[in-house]
Design a protein around this nucleic acid. Structure first.
Lengths: 182, 182
DNA sequence: GGCGATTCGTTGATTACTCAACAAATCAAG
DNA sequence: CTTGATTTGTTGAGTAATCAACGAATCGCC
């Protein structure tokens, strides 16, 4: 990986953090580029050096999180669902500011479907309908069924203020997945 | 005040914070410029754009704190010592990382005398030896006496881990000063 | 619809920061 | 003392960020 000028990293970090924080105060559509610049303490023009507009910025933020989750999946490739879930949910907890606001905001639909897409992509290969308890079922159905379950549960977890402790929710969804997909 | 490029402010802020944090881990003399650069996440050369060397940097940090305390004094000019002390001790509390390490470190002597100097400068004009309970005493003696008392008390407060609540220590030193200097 | 006020996205000139490289100074052992 | 390794302080070329200014687009309101 070509090493990037640390000014770029710092600016992008500040900008992305600014958006995450601002999203807890107002809807994304009500956030102006100037708001972001102020909060990030960068010149307004700097934002345009990195992003087309604020929607492009949000897109890139989402993509980055999806990539991180993807990486976590691959580094946990040889674990059970239960073990792997700990890693995911810890990530959710660490970035709860972003995820909870994304899942509640008006643009949640796009985010939700992008998230579902990732879960299907990552969980899909694990599903086996040639033997075991899912033998004879249509693969797409099983995948869609449990991916939806995961996404819905994560969504519910955030909307209820993460009342269930992170390790518990990770463990229990893990048990349900292991029971049905392994 | 001519407005300063925000990059300068950000760099200096990062550098100064880096020093304060590093001072909690090792003695100032053991801290290298590279350490500071790493912690502040700036290029080593950037530090030299603003400071001659690390001692100049520490000097500037001390001066800045002294100026802030001076400003606080002047904005609290018409208060009693007790009221004014709240403001000072709140400042101490907010920057306890800096002050406590400064007062304990090896370079403490310089800092201590600089601090004493400020207290004398600010408290001095308040002392009246022409009437009241201090009538007939030598002004310099009274000033030196109570300035030393204040500095020593602050030093003790930090060294004991600030066990006495901020408002209590502020109130009680205030009482002692008001009783003797007003 | 029309009008004033924001916000947007872009521009150009300037400046601060980065990075790599350097010689000199300092340090730590053998 | 000598050697090798850090650390220091400086240099120059390249780059990202700043700031002020601009017309265009969008918004809120009468």
């Amino acid at each position: 990986m070509a090493k990037v000028d640390r000014r770029i990293l710092k600016s992008q970090e500040a900008i992305k953090n600014a958006v995450t924080e601002l999203m807890t105060q107002k809807r994304f559509d009500d956030i102006t580029i100037q708001d972001i610049a102020d909060k990030a303490n960068v010149n307004r023009g700097t934002i345009y050096l990195h992003y087309m507009d604020k929607y492009d910025l949000l897109d890139k933020m989402i993509e980055e999180h999806m990539n991180n989750l993807e990486d976590l999946c691959h580094s946990a490739a040889d674990m059970t669902f239960q073990e792997g879930n700990y890693v995911w949910f810890e990530y959710f907890e660490r970035h709860h500011l972003f995820f909870s606001t994304m899942l509640e905001s008006k643009g949640a639909h796009y985010f939700r479907s992008r998230f579902l897409e990732l879960v299907i992509q990552e969980y899909g290969p694990e599903v086996d309908t040639t033997e075991g308890e899912n033998e004879g079922l249509r693969k797409e159905v099983v995948i869609q069924f449990f991916a939806s379950a995961v996404v819905g549960t994560v969504e519910w977890w955030f909307k209820n203020g993460m009342h269930v402790p992170t390790d518990i929710i990770a463990e229990q969804t893990g048990i349900l997945l292991d029971r049905n997909l392994e």
